[in-house]
Design a protein around this nucleic acid. Structure first.
Length: 455
RNA sequence: GUGGUUGUAGCUCAGCUGGUUAGAGCGCUGGAUUGUGGUUCCAGAGGUCGCCGGUUCGAACCCGGUCUUCCACCCCA
């Protein structure tokens, strides 16, 4: 007997129902991307290792799936690395390809390679799976979809405003209310580090600050101390731990703290612009909130930083993120091209919609009409009807076998098919068919050429 | 990558300090009902107890390893 099959940790099969629901989300996002003027591209599922490695920090490198070379690669590998059991050195010699880790770096690579065909500013969207060798948890997989929209070649803050509106439009169409779009700015974080004399510890400082809602004020302070940030420096940012009020009030407080930092003040100014314009334009399903503790993607973000939190009460990590990276393509040799973009986490949005029961019923309904099969002659009769139904755009099918009535009805019932058509010798003689509503149980016999109204 | 947790029928779960042929509900198949499903009744099928090894007269239960699940770190969609 063959061993029971399985799939790798952190991957999933999707049932027809799940695929339908996923497609509903994808089509909603895709539709809004197009409405906002983004154009689709796709990139390979794997890239040259050197394209990816070193772009996401040490932590990121660890999570990149690497692809073993083909052939007898060990023969060519350096004996030294094997002898010393040096995995890192050996890996570089026996693996030269790696699975895509996100969609942003491949996009940067794309822009550089296609720079002569692209008209700047270039707005692209991309909906594809990415892979991370992470340890799975709820809402965290090793294979998952990102839905990205980015613009390169424009420094305008109107892009940031547009992205907030885009987020809002998608969540509104998905009927997902109460989403919170958090925004921060790398320059503000850099300014804070600067005024406390910890510019060299920017990453440690912000990573600690980012954990405020998780480990609390004391936890954050302890972590900062552990990272070598002095107590008197921490005291100077004390107001951060008691940040309150409206976005404007928070920005006022920030400004007061950052008045001696040119960079910090620039960050506040940028935030002010985005906040005020979005406030003026309004949002439907989500709210935009300044969150000074937000510190994601610091390895490449240089301006705005976005993170999207599910509505309150839903235990889920962020369902989206993004930000601005000046010089996005610099790592691949094309200087002076700024990029800004956002990402939707399809798999997490799915879990949130599922938890809140927000999938429309129509997403699951597939076939509208099932024609019962009483035998070849009757099936032939039914086929003619099938054709006209399909011409009307009504999803319809014939039960392929002349199985027992009960079995066929049961099949329709379990698959949630709302209508069944019965056409046997009686109907064939009269030139009619019988249409049964499976929800109400009522049925009527109508002329063969009458297309049913299926409400 | 670190620490913990989970795994028994298709699904959700019982299963006593280790002791005969491992159970329930739901689902599934067939029948009651030869052109009428969802309700009801009757009958039936389905499990190498995640996998490998060990302890024991005897293991679903104890021990070790491994895979998987979920959780906390790390990090992140």
């Amino acid at each position: 007997m063959a061993k029971k099959p399985g799939i790798p940790k952190g991957t999933r099969d999707f049932t027809p129902e799940e695929v339908n629901k996923r497609n509903y989300i994808i089509e909603t996002i895709r539709g809004q991307f197009q409405l906002y003027g983004f154009q689709p591209i796709e990139t390979p599922s794997f890239e040259n290792s050197e394209t990816l490695l070193g772009k996401y920090g040490d932590e990121g490198d660890r999570l990149i799936f690497r692809i073993l070379n083909s052939g007898d690669f060990l023969r060519k590998a350096g004996a030294e690395a094997i002898e010393n059991r040096d995995s890192n050195s050996l890996a570089a010699q026996i693996s030269e390809k790696a699975l895509r880790y996100d969609l942003t770096v491949p996009f940067a690579r794309y822009v550089v390679m296609h720079q002569n065909e692209i008209d700047l500013p270039f707005k692209r969207y991309q909906i594809q799976p990415v892979w991370r060798a992470d340890r799975p948890q709820k809402g965290r997989f090793r294979e998952f979809y990102q839905c990205d929209a980015d613009v390169v070649g424009s420094d305008s803050l109107w892009q940031e405003v547009e992205f907030v509106k885009l987020y809002d439009a998608v969540f509104n169409e998905l009927n997902l209310k109460g989403v919170s779009i958090k925004i921060n700015n790398r320059k503000v974080l850099a300014g804070l580090a600067e005024i406390i004399g910890a510019s060299d510890k920017l990453i440690d400082f912000t990573v600690a600050l980012d954990k405020l809602d998780k480990i609390g004020e004391e936890g954050v302070k302890n972590e900062m101390l552990e990272k070598g940030i002095h107590q008197d420096a921490i005291d100077r940012i004390q107001p951060l731990f008691a940040f309150q009020g409206s976005n404007e009030e928070r920005l006022d407080q920030l400004e007061a703290m950052l008045k001696d930092s040119v960079e910090g003040m620039k960050g506040v100014e940028e935030l002010r612009f985005i906040i005020s314009r979005v406030a003026g334009l309004g949002t439907k399903a989500s709210s935009l909130e300044v969150d000074v503790t937000l510190a994601r993607g610091l390895n490449y973000y240089t301006g705005a930083i976005f993170e999207v939190a599910a509505p309150e009460g839903v235990a889920m990590g962020s369902i989206g993120g993004g930000g601005r990276y000046d010089d996005l393509t610099g790592i691949f040799g094309l200087k002076g091209v700024s990029g800004v973009g956002i990402s939707f986490g399809l798999d997490r949005i799915y879990l949130v919609l599922e938890e809140l029961g927000l999938f429309p019923e129509s997403v699951v309904e597939q076939t509208k009409v099932l024609i019962i099969n009483f035998g070849d002659e009757e099936a032939y009769y039914g086929m003619k009807l099938l054709e006209s139904l399909r011409e009307q755009g009504i999803k319809a099918e014939l039960y392929p076998d002349a199985a027992k009535m009960k079995k066929q009805m049961n099949y329709a019932n379990k698959r949630n098919v709302p209508y069944v058509i019965l056409a046997g010798t009686q109907e064939m003689n009269d030139g009619t068919y019988t249409l049964k509503n499976m929800r109400t149980g009522t049925q009527e016999t109508v002329k063969m050429d009458a297309i049913p109204y299926l409400g």
